[in-house]
Amino acid sequence: MIVYAEAVAAEVPDRKLPPFPEALIHIWQDFRELRPTKLVGMSAQQITWAEIEAFDAATFAGLSAWEKRLIRRLDDAFEAARPGNAPKKPASIADTRAALRAQIAARTAKAQAKGGQPSPT
């Protein structure tokens, strides 16, 4: 599905598009409905988690957590593949987790050096 979004964004002719996973058509439709809401001037902005949550609540779509993550990944892939955009790859979950663990470890070490507990903020 990500490959499909990249092909659509890159304006690949329909006859050359990769096969679409029919079981995920509802996600594609939700993504296409959310996408135009992010236009600012002539460029599109990233779809935020809050917008996905608001869309889910307003439309009673009943999106699961993985479907919401897929919409975000579709948006990242779509933006990266648009003509004129520098190629960029969305951060992987593993990279995000590693960065968060490093921040938590640094905060914990700092708090322990001061003799206290890490602050919640």
Rank of each mutant, 00 (worst) to 15 (best):
E33M: 10
E6P: 00
Q29A: 09
D14Q: 03
L39W: 14
L17K: 01
V40C: 06
I47M: 03
P21D: 09
L34E: 07
P18F: 00
D56R: 04
W28F: 12
R15S: 04
R15I: 04
A44V: 11
Q46E: 15
R35S: 03
V12K: 03
A9Y: 05
G41V: 11
Q45D: 15
A57I: 05
T48V: 05
A23H: 14
A5N: 06
A23D: 15
M1E: 08
V8L: 15
R32P: 00
V12Q: 02
A57K: 12
R15G: 00
A58I: 06
E53F: 09
I52D: 03
Y4G: 01
Q45K: 12
I52E: 06
A57V: 08
M1W: 06
E51K: 02
W49Q: 08
S43H: 14
W49N: 11
W28E: 13
V3G: 01
V3T: 08
G41Y: 10
Q46R: 11
D56C: 04
K38S: 12
T37C: 06
K16E: 15
A54R: 11
I25M: 06
W28Y: 11
E33K: 09
V3I: 06
E53W: 05
W49F: 02
Y4S: 02
A54P: 05
A7D: 12
H26I: 02
W49H: 06
G41S: 06
A10I: 09
E6M: 15
K38P: 02
A44L: 15
D14E: 10
D30A: 15
P18S: 04
F31L: 07
P19M: 01
R32N: 07
F55K: 03
R35V: 01
A9Q: 07
A58V: 06
I2W: 10
P18T: 02
A5Q: 13
W28S: 08
P13L: 07
V12G: 01
F31G: 03
K38L: 10
L39R: 15
W49P: 00
V8G: 00
L39I: 14
S43Q: 15
G41N: 10
R35G: 04
E33D: 14
T37V: 07
V8S: 01
L24E: 14
A58M: 07
P18C: 01
F60Q: 12
P36K: 12
V40A: 10
L39V: 14
I25W: 05
F20H: 10
M42H: 11
T37N: 09
D30S: 14
P19C: 00
L17N: 06
W28Q: 12
L24P: 00
I25L: 07
F31I: 08
T48F: 03
F20N: 05
I47R: 01
Q45L: 13
L34I: 09
D30G: 13
V40L: 13
A23R: 13
G41P: 08
L17S: 04
T48I: 04
T59A: 06
E33R: 11
